[in-house]
Design a binder for these strands. Structure first.
Lengths: 233, 233, 233, 233
DNA sequence: CATGAATGAGCTTTCATTCAT
DNA sequence: GATGAATGAAAGCTCATTCAT
């Protein structure tokens, strides 16, 4: 039977909150750190501010993370999780032309990563990779490699189905990747202080890029010539 | 006949060095600054270290550059901005198809910027722009704007001469820019610790990108359809 | 019965000291700052030295005061500005002739400001005002203006009650102010190294000045002449 | 016979100027230093600026003065010269009432010292005396002592001629001195950044002060009472 | 566990002073 | 003598990290 005493209820809530908090602390700190690292970069983010945004004291931060660097590592580890299996499945079961699949893939990336805070991680890794080789390597295996594989399969599907010209797939993935990652970088760096008239509208940017790319990739009437993208012997 | 007195030789060297110094100082400082900014980023580079690498004292640095920010601006002017007039002239007088001009432009960028330490600046600005708004604004005006203008003129030439499809030029420049800037970023960040088999060969990367882009831009037999890149009304 | 264990005693003291600290810090810092500012002036006082004299580290100083200038302002507020409301009340409720009020005011100033370290602030402001315009402006609003107002009311009272001749009050306040501020200046500058026989006895100095001033201000039998201090038309 | 060659004439002039300069150097440096010390104070005056204003290089300054402190001392020594004998003579031969003599003296001081750059020295000494005890002592003997003596004789004349009440002359001189020196200080410190409506008009200030002082000093009908300014026994 | 006062190394910038020319 | 490029000791302020409570 629930207590009807309002004060007790409040006290219960407070206690509950506190108990929940204890476990949640590292998570709250990581969330706050993600936000701030994305907003201001690693060096410019002050430990105290992370603590404040997580609602704890400076000391507590260092209770859970030995140093700001360790916090940074934890943030990246926490946030580069396994979207890939989900996407793999989606793409695997996609019905329709590969051109449409590519359009869909890019839009999906923008909606789920590019336009969210998660894209800040990309920017962050690009910015700080050289200072954290260990993290960079980690990111390489956990994010970049799977991402490339995914995209390569999309392109392979196009080639296999005769929709795309044969191509050097290793470099082909960059045809799609580069414009997208550039957009993410831009959004978090120079895009924030762009001159008037230079702002990028992401939707239009993506449309233009993908349309052009598709024109470049699409199978052309046979000419007997070697594929354009083949690496010179 | 050379004097064989070792002391005199040393004295001569010292004098010669000293005489050469005054004029060489700014250049030596700029070279040291470029190296360090590229290696460690703007914020993490200490003025004293720049001075030390240039072989002078902390004070001397500030004799030539009023502040660390001014030093950075000078580095940018020396290594990037200064190049635009030269390029403008080159492109202006280019004889040949616009496809060739575009190929030439991209190669020229790679040889003179992309493959040199100067491309570190691009990476650096992307990484730290949001923490140094004044620098970002400077870079915007001094590098990005002129760069866009230059590239826009190249594309415009293609459209005007009937080589390229009509396009939304503002977004068209990103079709060329994004892959190139991504390459520069990559080289200075995750590229430095890439897994085996993932290294990018810049020459091939550029070839693939440009060829694909050109296929996407090139004028197709008239279909009466609206231009692909036109922004939806 | 007191513990005779020496270690315990020390531990107790340390704890006591620590507990007392937090609240006492700003006060200790302000006291140290007052001393050093008065000893060496504003510019020549190093923040670190203030901290050291207060028994804390450099960082701690900036934990309580955002900058050296803010520290100075706090010193002024603590030692001077804060006094005006008290004085206002005293003067407002003063019973007796305005001559006595003036005598009382001047003595009060000497006892509470002039003879204390606080008068060093006056000297300091006079010495360094031109190098720190913001401080000068602060002092102007926080000290000079209220001081003038206070004194003007005293003189006005004398005029209103028919004890003093009508006068140009703006300049009248300087009749009282100038000798007092000169005394403060003197004490902290040349007075510290005065030749034998030239030392000023403040009490006598004040007596002589006030008596003379009062003779000069006191209402004289009507002569029909214009008031002496009226500005010439 | 003068050379009629115009070029030679110019060359001669240049040489003459240079030769004259060589001797004049220290003087030019002292003049520049006086100006700058008065304008900005000792600490805030940069050696380079003194040199520039004197038209020489930084190195030359240190050729003539071993340090900035020595320069300061030299400036004071150069500028506190022997106005006193001249004034002594003037006052000695003054025809008229002592009240008029006092008025004349004060006006003379204002015209020749107070309103000129020389008053900057007064301010400077008051400001920096405690940091340069040796200079302070020097100033004490060369300026203050003679000044007091001069003024004391004026007051003595008034007492002797029955124009002024008998008084304690040692403190009497401050009745005149304090308002004047305060004016000089004010002019060079807080007066430069005074709030609107608080500016002092020196002429009016002097008139008010002197008139009031004279009322306080002037012989009153005998009352049998002890002189007001006599030190209490 | 959590706190937050305290620390001190580190950073940019200034400027009196030196010294090779 | 005269120069001015070069020096390097400070100074104000920041912030990651510690630790007594």
């Amino acid at each position: 039977m629930p207590s009807s005493c309002p004060i007790c209820e409040i006290a219960d809530k407070v206690r509950a909150k506190r108990e929940r908090r204890k476990d949640a602390r590292p998570g709250e700190l990581l969330a706050a750190a993600l936000e701030l690292f994305v907003e201001k970069g690693f060096a410019a983010t002050r430990a105290e501010e992370v603590a404040k945004r997580a609602g704890v004291s400076k000391g507590t931060l260092f209770l859970y993370f030995a140093s700001k660097e360790e916090l940074f590592k934890a943030v990246v580890r926490e946030n580069i999780s396994g979207r890939f299996t989900e996407w793999n499945a989606e793409f695997e079961s996609f019905q329709g032309s590969t051109a449409d699949l590519l359009r869909y893939s890019v839009r999906a990336w923008w909606e789920r990563i590019g336009s969210t805070k998660a894209s800040g991680i990309t920017k962050l890794m690009m910015s700080e990779a050289s200072n954290f080789p260990e993290l960079a390597s980690f990111y390489q295996h956990e994010v970049i490699q799977p991402g490339h594989d995914l995209l390569r399969r999309v392109l392979q599907r196009g080639v296999d189905q005769g929709e795309f010209e044969p191509m050097d797939l290793k470099y082909g993935v960059y045809i799609v990747l580069a414009p997208m990652l550039f957009l993410a970088m831009w959004k978090h760096s120079l895009g924030t202080c762009s001159a008037a008239g230079m702002e990028i509208d992401p939707d239009h940017y993506i449309t233009v890029q993908v349309d052009t790319i598709l024109l470049g990739l699409t199978k052309r009437p046979a000419t007997g010539a070697a594929p354009l993208n083949a690496k010179a012997p």
